[in-house]
Amino acid sequence: DETGKFLVLSLYDYQEKSPREVTMKKGDILTLLNSTNKDWWKVEVNGRQGFVPAAYVKFL
């Protein structure tokens, strides 16, 4: 199980638009929880879990 094993870097600021999403700032290091959807990845940032656009992050 690779859940929570990968870190990704936020390339852009992102403001959550729904309760299922999370806000991140450019340069944030996020824990990747799920990347099965090619468009939206589930991450943990600042103690919160939610989705961010996959195009806004990259693997470290």
Rank of each mutant, 00 (worst) to 15 (best):
V45M: 10
M24N: 00
F6M: 13
V8E: 00
E16M: 11
D1F: 13
F59G: 07
L7D: 04
Q15Y: 14
K25M: 09
A55N: 13
Y56W: 06
W40Y: 07
Y12W: 10
S18G: 12
S18T: 12
T31G: 05
K38G: 09
K5N: 11
V45I: 15
D1P: 14
E16V: 05
K58H: 10
K5D: 09
L11T: 06
A54V: 06
V52N: 00
K25I: 08
N34G: 07
L60M: 11
F6W: 14
S35P: 07
E16H: 08
L9S: 05
W41E: 00
R48H: 07
D39Y: 15
K26I: 07
E44Y: 05
M24S: 00
R20G: 15
Q49R: 10
E21W: 05
Q49A: 12
G4C: 15
L9H: 05
G47K: 05
V57E: 00
L11H: 03
E44P: 00
N37Y: 08
K58L: 11
G4E: 13
T3I: 13
F59W: 09
P19Y: 10
K17E: 08
K42N: 06
R48F: 07
A54K: 07
G4A: 12
E44T: 06
L30K: 00
V52Y: 01
R20C: 15
G4M: 13
V52A: 02
V52I: 10
K5P: 14
Y12K: 12
D13G: 05
V45Q: 08
T31V: 15
E2C: 15
E16I: 05
L33E: 01
D13M: 03
K26D: 03
D39A: 09
P53V: 05
R48A: 07
L9V: 15
E2A: 14
V57F: 04
N37H: 11
V22R: 01
E16F: 06
V52E: 01
E2Y: 10
T3V: 13
D39H: 13
S10V: 15
D13V: 03
L11V: 09
L11E: 05
N34W: 07
L30S: 02
F59S: 09
K58R: 12
F51V: 06
T36K: 11
A55K: 15
V45T: 10
K58S: 12
F6K: 13
S10M: 06
Y56R: 05
E16K: 14
R48V: 10
L60T: 07
T31P: 09
W40C: 06
V22M: 09
I29L: 09
Y14R: 02
K5R: 14
L60F: 11
D13N: 07
I29F: 06
A54S: 14
F6Q: 14
S18F: 06
T23S: 15
E44F: 05
K42D: 03
G47F: 04
M24D: 00
K26Y: 05
E44N: 05
L60A: 07
W40M: 06
K25F: 09
E44L: 08
R48C: 06
G47T: 04
V52H: 01
R20W: 15
L60R: 03
E2P: 14
D28Y: 04
G50L: 03
Y56E: 03
M24L: 08
D1R: 13
N37L: 09
K26N: 03
G4K: 14
Y12H: 14
V52R: 00
D28E: 12
N46P: 03
P53S: 03
Y14C: 07
G27H: 04
R48P: 02
R48Y: 06
R20P: 05
S18H: 11
R20N: 15
K38N: 11
L32F: 05
A54F: 02
N46D: 12
G50R: 01
E21R: 04
G27K: 02
D28C: 07
P19M: 09
V8R: 02
F51L: 09
V43L: 02
Y56A: 12
G50W: 03
K5M: 11
W41M: 04
D13Y: 05
N34M: 07
T23D: 03
E16D: 05
N46V: 04
G47C: 06
S35I: 10
V57T: 03
F59R: 10
W41C: 04
N37T: 06
E2T: 14
L7A: 06
A55G: 12
P53A: 03
K38H: 11
G4Y: 12
Y56L: 15
L33R: 02
G27L: 02
V8C: 12
E16Y: 04
K26S: 07
D28R: 02
K26M: 08
G27W: 04
S18W: 06
D39L: 13
D13S: 07
P53T: 03
T23Y: 04
L32K: 01
T23H: 04
M24V: 10
N34F: 06
K25E: 06
Y56T: 08
F51E: 03
L11F: 05
E16C: 12
V52K: 00
E21M: 05
F59N: 08
G4F: 14
S10K: 04
V57Y: 03
T3C: 15
N34S: 12
D28V: 05
L60W: 10
G50S: 01
S10F: 07
G47V: 02
V22H: 02
L33F: 03
Q15V: 14
M24C: 06
F6P: 12
K38F: 07
K26R: 11
N37I: 05
R20V: 11
V22D: 00
A54H: 03
F51A: 01
T36N: 12
S35F: 11
V8M: 09
Y56S: 11
W41Y: 10
T3E: 12
Q49D: 06
E21L: 06
F59K: 11
T36P: 03
V22L: 13
K42Q: 13
Q49L: 07
L11K: 06
N46E: 10
D1I: 14
S18I: 04
L30M: 15
T36V: 10
D28K: 03
E2L: 14
V45W: 06
L33C: 08
A55C: 14
I29R: 05
D39N: 12
L32Q: 00
N46W: 05
K25S: 09
I29Q: 05
L32G: 02
G4D: 11
L32T: 01
Y12G: 07
V8F: 07
S10G: 09
R48K: 12
W40A: 01
P19V: 10
V57K: 00
T23E: 03
S10L: 08
R20A: 12
